[in-house]
Structure formats: structure tokens, C-alpha cells
Design a protein around this nucleic acid. Structure first.
Length: 769
DNA sequence: GCGGATCAC
DNA sequence: TATGGTGATCCGC
């Protein structure tokens, strides 16, 4: 009987406990899975998981059918292609960067434990009965982990303490650690509140030329081995902020007379009670704690240790870090010595190869539980297995995925951190107690649209594609989207579109009710809303300054009568002309000549180094489109230019896209190879009858306005605005992030990319003054 | 362009 | 009693 249930629980492979996470080694997995199974079985959620499991098993069967149909010749071909790819990849392997991944240990839980010492020796988790965000290391021993419902966690660990999340606090702590990150890499790339990638390459160059003084930091004396203990009477400010300047400026600290080898010993021997140091903190007025001085070396190990120590001194929280030549490896490394540890893979091909050999594929960011199982059916569990089975993988997966796998076998990953990029979508969704009443569903939809419109307005964004997401009470997820003719962030317009999408779904459930547990609305195809502050990225994407946000209302008309979309309601706020950009053939060689079951279409080529630079310019003068060397000197771009009505500044496009729109189309030749932008010449003004009235034309770069600005003058003016310097900066930026050299394989974008950096304004102290 | 799936956090 | 929210990407139409 128990055997049967155990089998039952293992049936849902994706529901089983995942001991991948740090602090979860050596658990009684069987017992844990049994408890999870007992708590879940029979639920709608469980049934849906079973369904998904069956689908996955079906996919595996199809995959195996495909594999078994491969002839020896085809396998040989796959092998040859794989080996050729691997050779090419090896040729462009870049080990010149030092990438660090820093990850706070059990972040939310650690913050809560820090602020409530009663939690310290208890199993605890942050979250609620329905979902946990994270758990502390004590709770992990019971199998309690992030993304687990609280009620199941309590079954695993009845003494578990659940703590409500406090995101305001986590955000504030995150800001503190980011200020430290910025001192080692001002362009660091945050992934979430608690982790970030840093490129320390430049820091290390400066560091090697720095004086010892720059590498001395204060450490609180620990009363216990594991963590800093602060009492209420003692200052808990960042010692390195409030006291370090005084300490290292002390005349008594005459380190120049001490040799580097003896410096740490000298620092240890110092008795600060003899020094003229403040006794109380100038910030909080509390007594300053006893401390020691630590000298860090110029090596990367010490740089990272220094950074982690400073984080701990400032936040009383520990971080782990991974050091490697690329982001993929650095991420794996940061997990290696968690918690409160670090691990390095040196930029050495042999060492990388050795490291990858026994690494489970699940450790790689981008390989989740589904891919793990899919690969498991091909006897692939370790990264080295990806190499062993490369002939099969060539046939069983898409070109992009195949390349991704081959890069993993070589330990390759991104060597540059993503720059700030514009977001691609914005959404809001809520889970709720079952709703089936259509009126209530529309009401919920309206709330979500209101929320979304507010967010869009706050972020000064407008979008074109509205998506509705629904999850039925049986956990079935559907998305339905509609692309408007115009960009908008108007609540009514968004709701009108979402309402129609919802109506179709409600109507499609014949003779019964659509029962939902979740609804969401998303806006994608975003453009920045115009403002006087013209950013380089947004300048050509600008819409009119006045958009149709005025008529917001909280009352909604649920009267659904039209069966089709009422396009009149979709007002235009921006009019972007279709780009006339020739899409050129890929510069990469086509590898998958024989299409496999899982790969029927060739993925579009990713930008290579050269075209990537142009691409970055294309991005802000037009939609992002591919452009190759061959058309570098003959590249058509589009731009939309703000046109405002003289009289009331209302958005002309907004009223009716066809009759009142005034479009300035610039099919201009732009010579990117000279790194300059040529005139927006040959621009044609397409105006409607109605727009013959006098109009203000604004320069899309500086915003200057003139009545009926002659195009040639406008072009000249824009030339001035778009100075050579600006373009050069952008090209340089792009160059820096693409130092791979031109290769005939898709660049690192084919790896799951580092998510876009959130906009963070951080005051960067100059570390090496 | 759309919808489903997968993934990360 | 009870299994999240946000954003991105890829694949196959």
C-alpha cells in the first residue's frame, strides 16, 4: 500500500521535492514526497499537475520515437554538425572577463530573523498559507522551501513559523547592498532584490594599482562565530561609512612604514583606545562597537570577500558569491559554498571542463524541471552527458536550444552584462476565490485594467497589445490577446479590449459558466509616453505629449453587445510608421538542414557584433529590426515625428487614425558605417486634408517647436541635435557589450539572457579616490 | 501575430 | 480551506 502511494507521488515528477537548493542536501526525500503527495492528492491543482505530467510523458514518447527513427547516417551528420559547432564556439570562447554573481543567503528570511531574534533558532518561512517566498536553513531541513504552499510546509514542519513578507523593508536593504555593488561595478546587473551580476574586470585593474589603504576595512568583533551580535545600546550603522574615514586618516596609522607582508599583523596589533577616535556614532549617537581592521589583497578572491564582508557589516546579512569568466558559471559557483561562502572557477579551459564534467544539468540557469526530465529520458543528467549525446540533441531540439546545450558543455555563457533596456511588457494579475458570475468577472477585469493603466501611466508607457490571462478553477491557463491599431495607456481603451477578449471566453463555455480563480491583464508592444525629457532611446518613439489619459473613470459599462472589436474605441496616441527595413539573410551558417520534430523553423539570426551595433541604433530610430553589413550604407529607417495641433494640442492621431493623422515619414538613408547619422532626408510629409491647417512640428530630439517647420530646415536642425558624439557613445556602449568578435554562431543572446536591469539610481561613491 | 510552455526569481 | 505575481523567451503555428 505504502509502496503504491509512494509510486503515486513519484508519478508527478515535477511536484516532487527539489533538493537542488542550498541547505537541502541529505533530506529524507521519500518521506517528504509522501507528505506532499498526501496533502495534494485529489485537489484540482494535483489533477492539473497530473495532466501536465501526462503531456510531458507524451512529449518524451514522441521524442523517443524520433530518436529511434534516426538512421546511422543521420546520427553521423548530427555528430559532425555538433563537432563543427563546438569548434566554432571554442574559437570564440572569451575568458578575459571576471564575472561575479552575488546572492544573499535566504534573503527575506534572513532579514526577518535579523529583525526578530526570537526567530533565530526556529524553522521559519516568509509567506502565507498559500505560498512561501523563502525559508530559513532550519526549515529547509524539513523540506520547506520557496514556492511551496504554506499549508503543506506546515505538514512537513508543524513548528514552522510563518512570517508575512515586508517588501518595503527588503527593498530598502536591497538598496544598501546595491550601493556596495556599485562601488565594484557601476554597471552591475541586478536580477532581483537579493542577487546581481557584476563585471569586476575593470575594478581588478584599478585594484592592482591601488594603495593598501584603499583595501583596509573595518570588521565588528564577533562574539559568536556565525553572526554579528548587536545590542540595543550599540551603534548598528555601517561602520565603514561612519568610522572608516577617521580610522584610515589617522596619523597614527602609519602604514607606509610597514611592509605589505606584515601589514595585517600590524593592524591586528593596533590598540584603538589610544587613538583619538570618536566614542559615539555621529549618526545615531550610540556607542561605537569594538572593531578590527582587515587588509584585503588585490586578488579577485579578496575583492569579493571584501565586498561580502562590507555587505555583512552594513546589513548584518550574509551573501554568497561565485567568480568565473561568464555569468553562467558565476551563477553556478555562487551556489557552491552557500551560505556565506564563495567559489571561483579560474579562466582556464581545463578547469572549466573539469568543473562541468560532474555538474548536474539542473544546476544550470535555464534548465528547469521539465527540461531536466526531457533530457533525463535521453540519459542526460550531467553536463558532460550533453556532449556525449550531442548527435541526438542536434536532431531532437531546435537550433537555438541545441546551441545552448553545446555552450553548456563547454562552460560558456554571457561575458557581458545586459545594459538597461526598455521593458517589453507590463502586467497585473490576481488570484481570487472562484468567480463564475459574468458581471463579477467583468468587474474584476475592470479593476485589473485600472491597475494596469495606473502602472503604465506611472511608468510613462503606452502599449499596443492587450492580453487577457485566465486560470480556471481547474488550473487551466489561457491567454488571449488583441493588438490595437494605436498605442495607449488609457484605462477605458484597455478595458474595452480586455472586456471583449473576456466575453469571447465567457461565451465559448457553452451552457455553463466560466469559473475562474485568476485573471490578469498585460500590455505589450510598449513605447515611451512622450515627455519633454527626451531620452536617447525614446526620442524617436515619442508620441504626442498629450495622450488620451484624460477621460479616466471608475465606472464601467459592462453592457457587452458588440461581437467584434469596436475599433473606434481604440484611439491612437502614437503613430509609428511601419519600418521599411530590409531583413537580410542570416550571417550564421544554417546547421539544421533537416528539421526535427521539435524544430520546424529556423530561428531568426541574432545580432552579431557588427550588425548588433547598427541594431542598437536602429532600435531607437525605429523598431528593432535586423540589419546586416551588406546594407550598412543603405539602411532605411523610420522615425515618427511629433506633430501637434496648433489649436488645442490634442492628439490628431487619437481621434481617427485614418483621417486626421499627420505622418512624417522619413525613409532616410542613414550611413551607419561611419558611425554618424545622416540627414533625415527625403522625408515626406503625408498629411490628410484636415491636417492642412497650421501645425506645430517638434524636433524629436530636443523638443523645439516651430510652425510648419520646413523639412530641410528640420533635418538640418536634427543633425545638430544628433551630434556625432551621441552616436559614438552609443556605438561604444554597444561595442563594449559585444567584445566577442564576429563569429558565425549566434551570440550569447541564445542563452536565456540576463533579465533586464531594473532602473536603479545609485549614488556611486568613488571607491578609489 | 497568437497561444502555449518553460523558466527565473 | 488552501498551490503566487511579474517578466521574458522560445516554439509552432
Amino acid at each position: 500500500m505504502s509502496k503504491l502511494t509512494a509510486q503515486g507521488s513519484s508519478l508527478i515528477s515535477t511536484m516532487a521535492i527539489n533538493d537542488n537548493k542550498a541547505g537541502m542536501e541529505g533530506l529524507n526525500k521519500e518521506k517528504i514526497n509522501q507528505i506532499i503527495f498526501e496533502a495534494s492528492k485529489g485537489s484540482k491543482f494535483f489533477e492539473n499537475e497530473q495532466k501536465k505530467e501526462e503531456q510531458l510523458n507524451q512529449k518524451i514518447l514522441e521524442q523517443q520515437t524520433l530518436i529511434s527513427s534516426l538512421s546511422p547516417a543521420m546520427l553521423f551528420h548530427g555528430l559532425k554538425e555538433a563537432d563543427e559547432l563546438i569548434e566554432k564556439l571554442k574559437d570564440c570562447q572569451d575568458l578575459s572577463h571576471t564575472i561575479v554573481h552575488v546572492d544573499m543567503d535566504a534573503f527575506y528570511a534572513a532579514v526577518e530573523m535579523r529583525d526578530d531574534p526570537r526567530l533565530k533558532d526556529k524553522p521559519m518561512a516568509v509567506g502565507g498559507m498559500s505560498m512561501l517566498s523563502t525559508s530559513n536553513y532550519i526549515a529547509r531541513k524539513y523540506g520547506v522551501r520557496a514556492a511551496m504552499p504554506g499549508f503543506i510546509a506546515l505538514k512537513l514542519c508543524p513548528n514552522l513559523v510563518l512570517v508575512e513578507p515586508n517588501f518595503t523593508k527588503y527593498t530598502s536593504v536591497s538598496q544598501e547592498i546595491r550601493e556596495i555593488f556599485a562601488q565594484y561595478d557601476p554597471n552591475f546587473s541586478p536580477m532581483s532584490l537579493d542577487e546581481a551580476y557584476l563585471d569586476l574586470t575593470e575594478h581588478l585593474i584599478y585594484r592592482r594599482g591601488s594603495s593598501n589603504l584603499c583595501r583596509i576595512f573595518l570588521l565588528r568583533l564577533k562574539t559568536d562565530n556565525s553572526s554579528i551580535v548587536v545590542n540595543d545600546l550599540e551603534c548598528s550603522c555601517d561602520l565603514n561609512a561612519v568610522l572608516r574615514p577617521s580610522v584610515i586618516n589617522l596619523e597614527e596609522l602609519k602604514i607606509n612604514s610597514v611592509s605589505s607582508e606584515n601589514l595585517q599583523e600590524y593592524l591586528n596589533s593596533l590598540d584603538f583606545s589610544n587613538f583619538n577616535l570618536p566614542k559615539d556614532c555621529q549618526v545615531c549617537n550610540k556607542k561605537l562597537p569594538p572593531f578590527s581592521l582587515k587588509l584585503y589583497d588585490t586578488t579577485v578572491e579578496d575583492a569579493v570577500l571584501e565586498m561580502r564582508n562590507r555587505i555583512e557589516q552594513r546589513t548584518f546579512l550574509t551573501a554568497s558569491a561565485g567568480i568565473a569568466p561568464n555569468t553562467m558559471l558565476a551563477k553556478v559557483c555562487s551556489d557552491r559554498n552557500k551560505p556565506n561562502g564563495q567559489f571561483q572557477i579560474h579562466p582556464d579551459v581545463q578547469e572549466i571542463e573539469e568543473f562541468m564534467k560532474n555538474l548536474p544539468i539542473r544546476k544550470i540557469s535555464g534548465i528547469g524541471k521539465v527540461t531536466e526530465k526531457l533530457l533525463g529520458s535521453l540519459n542526460i543528467g550531467l553536463c558532460s552527458d550533453l556532449y556525449k549525446q550531442r548527435a541526438l540533441l542536434y536532431h531532437a531540439f531546435s537550433s537555438l536550444t541545441f546551441q545552448y546545450f553545446m555552450k553548456i558543455t563547454l562552460g560558456m555563457g554571457s561575458t557581458s552584462l545586459e545594459k538597461d533596456e526598455e521593458r517589453k511588457s507590463l502586467s497585473t494579475e490576481r488570484t481570487f476565490a472562484e468567480i463564475s458570475d459574468p458581471a463579477q468577472l467583468y468587474e474584476k477585469c475592470a479593476e485589473l485594467c485600472q491597475h494596469l493603466a495606473k502602472d503604465l501611466n506611472e511608468e510613462q508607457l503606452m502599449g499596443k497589445t492587450v492580453s487577457l490571462k485566465i486560470k480556471t478553477i481547474s488550473f487551466e491557463i489561457k491567454t488571449r490577446s488583441h493588438t490595437l491599431q494605436c498605442y495607449t495607456n488609457d484605462e477605458k481603451i484597455i478595458f474595452n479590449a480586455a472586456k471583449q477578449l473576456l466575453k469571447v471566453e465567457i461565451d465559448s463555455v457553452k451552457q455553463s459558466l466560466l469559473c475562474l480563480r485568476l485573471m490578469g491583464v498585460r500590455m505589450s508592444k510598449l513605447v515611451p509616453q512622450a515627455s519633454n525629457q527626451v531620452s536617447i532611446v525614446s526620442m524617436f518613439n515619442q508620441s504626442n505629449r498629450l495622450t488620451s489619459t484624460a477621460n479616466r473613470t471608475n465606472t464601467h459599462n459592462f453592457n457587452i453587445q458588440k461581437t467584434d472589436f469596436d475599433e473606434k474605441d481604440f484611439s491612437t496616441s502614437i503613430n509609428v510608421l511601419e519600418a521599411n527595413v530590409p531583413v537580410l539573410e542570416s550571417t550564421m551558417t544554417t546547421r539544421h538542414s533537416q528539421k526535427s520534430l521539435f524544430q520546424k523553423t529556423q530561428s531568426p539570426p541574432k545580432k552579431t557584433t557588427e550588425s548588433g551595433m547598427k541594431n542598437s541604433i536602429m532600435k531607437f530610430v525605429s523598431k528593432s529590426e535586423r540589419c546586416s553589413d551588406k546594407i550598412a550604407n543603405n539602411c532605411y529607417v523610420e522615425s515618427n515625428i511629433k506633430v501637434q495641433n496648433n489649436n488645442n494640442l490634442r492628439n490628431l492621431d487619437c481621434e481617427n487614425s485614418s483621417s486626421t493623422s499627420l505622418k512624417l515619414q522619413s525613409n532616410s538613408k542613414s550611413n551607419f558605417s561611419n558611425a554618424t547619422m545622416q540627414n533625415v532626408s527625403q522625408a515626406t510629409l503625408i498629411s490628410s486634408v484636415e491636417s492642412k491647417q497650421k501645425t506645430f512640428i517638434s524636433c524629436p530630439v530636443c523638443g523645439q517647436q516651430k510652425f510648419d517647420w520646413p523639412l530641410d530646415q528640420l533635418n538640418q536642425h536634427m543633425d545638430l541635435c544628433l551630434s556625432r558624439k551621441t552616436i559614438k557613445t552609443i556605438l561604444q556602449d554597444e561595442k563594449n557589450s559585444n567584445k566577442r568578435g564576429s563569429v558565425q554562431v549566434e551570440n550569447d543572446d541564445s542563452l536565456p539572457s540576463v533579465p533586464k536591469r531594473k532602473k536603479t539610481q545609485i549614488a556611486v561613491d568613488s571607491y578609489f579616490k
